[in-house]
Simulated assay, not measured.
Amino acid sequence: MPAVFPDWSPYTELDSAARAYLRDPEIALDALAGVMRGSQVLGFTLERFVNEVNGVWQEVVVCDGTRLVLWHGEDLPPGDGPPGSMSSSLRVVALSAVTEVGCRRRLTRTGGGQVRVDSIDVYLLLSSLDETSAGPGLGAAEDGGPVIRHDALRFGKTLDDGGAGQIGRLEEFARLVSSLVGRPMI
């Protein structure tokens, strides 16, 4: 059964959105504050879901105009620590490392002919390489060499997972990043 979380899309301030949506907003906001250090939040997106093995998985992605700051929190699986243990991690990606932004919307028509967006998938292709392994059956290219893949950040929302408001906010975030990629950083 899918978990239903409060809608963060009406909140334009990161602090309010995180407190409404995340299970552990204090941990996330404290970790982000240590990196942001007064930088202006131009846009953000949030994600949260329940994994059958690990429990709650949470993510915040913030754009400050020159970089993306990602916080990720995840419950540890049973046996990897005392009950209630979780990981908290940060990743900072310079916008200059984003080489491509893709946004795919799935549109449907209502009975009255209105077009509606019922899902969105966004990817940010990075100049860094993803970890890969090569060998028989492990992703080797046809010539036997390793398969090289660029690292990517992926985000998605649907009407069932987030609703129309979060779909719209993720699309706004993709447009913001798209407008900044490739511009000189001053």
Rank of each mutant, 00 (worst) to 15 (best):
M1L: 00
A3Y: 01
P6H: 13
D7H: 05
Y11H: 14
T12D: 15
L14C: 09
L14H: 04
D15V: 15
D15H: 13
R23K: 08
P25A: 09
I27L: 01
L32S: 00
L32Q: 05
V35R: 12
V35Y: 11
M36G: 04
R37M: 11
R37N: 11
R37I: 04
S39G: 05
G43C: 04
E52V: 06
V53T: 08
N54L: 10
W57Y: 06
W57M: 08
V62P: 08
V69K: 09
L70T: 11
L70Q: 15
W71Y: 14
H72K: 03
G73M: 02
G73E: 04
P78Y: 07
G79Q: 11
S85P: 02
S87Q: 05
S88D: 06
S96P: 12
S96I: 08
A97R: 07
V98W: 00
T99F: 10
E100P: 07
T108P: 01
R109H: 05
E131P: 09
T132S: 10
P136Y: 08
P136E: 07
A140N: 05
H150A: 12
D151S: 11
D151Y: 15
A152P: 04
A152K: 07
L153D: 04
R154P: 01
F155C: 08
G156I: 15
T158I: 05
T158C: 03
L159Y: 09
G162E: 13
G162Q: 10
A164G: 07
Q166N: 14
Q166W: 13
Q166D: 13
E171K: 09
E172L: 12
E172F: 07
F173Y: 14
L176G: 09
V177H: 04
S178F: 13
L180G: 04
L180W: 02
G182N: 13
M185K: 10
M185R: 14
